[in-house]
Amino acid sequence: MKLRLIFTAAAFGIGCATLAFAADEPQKERQELMKGVGGATGTMAKMVKGEEPFDQAAVIAALETISANVEKFPELFPEGSETGMETEAAPAIWENMEDFRAKADKLQSDADAILADPPADLDGLKAVFGPLTKNCGACHETYRIKKS
């Protein structure tokens, strides 16, 4: 009985350690950050498409998410994280790290510039949404590879 308890506890401990380890992998972490950027983009896109009413507070929160996430993002491509965890990161990232960082910086500065004078209505959002999200494709064109 006691032995079974110890085994269960040990198995549980290993399980937790594995989970914690997996969450710390840069591949996983950067995937989560990008999911956050996608979600924030979706919040604004639904307003632009007319599926949701304009909500300035939600727009500001979305822009803050994009700015914060993309600030951390380029730090998560250390040597050794080129493969694994179903990464879609292209080898070109490590060949052109400077350009890759510059593209991340540009998205962040574009988001910050909009935050400094956030759109007051739907037309204002429409005016900045297109130019802001051009950054997505501009980076994914070279640095993201779809595996399926």
Binding site: G38, C136, G137, H140, E141
Partner: peptide, 10 residues
């Protein structure tokens, strides 16, 4: 789900 276009498709 608001992922973006990438690669040659851009």
């Amino acid at each position: 789900d608001f992922d973006s276009v990438g690669g040659s498709m851009v």
